[in-house]
Amino acid sequence: MNQLFATFAWLLDPAHYAGPDAIQVRVGEQVEYTLLTLLLASIIALPAGLAIGHTGRGRTLGVQIPAVLRALPTLGLVILLALMVGLGLLAPLIALVILAIPPILAGAYSGLESVDRETVDAARALGMTGWQVLWKVEIPLSLSLITGGLRSAALQAVATWTIAAILPLGGLGRYIFDALPVQDYPKMLAGSMLVIALALVTDALFALLQKVVTPPGVRAGRASLVRAKTTHSHARAALFRHASFIRNER
């Protein structure tokens, strides 16, 4: 209990809201790193994932690469790249972008694949071009899953930037790594609580975004659409949600 009081005292101490190590500065850095990671990973993974989902080509690669990446220990990857590339933001950024690609990629292609084949077939039969099918049918109908992939990637980035603070970087992990050698437990706890709070806020924001981007007709028709689905495709969908875009590291 004393630890808890000490932690809250640390969090409320006005001294921790000033200077380069101020809480708001560290939160800002963490958010900035995370957004940068998401942006760079999206530039690579979204077009690739959409291409795989739309054409069905390159899927084996799109599945296997994330599966292999998932087995990589982030801590090792971050440190290895730092030793190879040098200290600074670049090494961890490369590592984090690599790690953020699988969930975004998987969200995009499994999102597109979740769209009813009959709907896509009908859109083609009506005379939509490939691009029109993609933009007017496939993307709107899978936006929620695509956002889900971004959500996983964002949470992973928040978590991994915390670990990456083992390098001389900013962000909230700084508190934990600065406090570790001197056993400043309240500071470690305060840093941890801030990261957890940031992660939960991120998760909630993306959950909200997923609701917002779901087209109204899909929400309205969910019950009847679900009814039409066969059992095995339900199982398949369940599998997809878990297997494809679960982040490996927090």
Binding site: E118, T119, D121, A125, L141, V218, L225, A228
Partner: peptide, 11 residues
């Protein structure tokens, strides 16, 4: 073109 299960765009 009219298909089974209508193939309507759900959104």
């Amino acid at each position: 073109y009219v298909m089974q299960n209508s193939g309507l765009l759900p959104h």
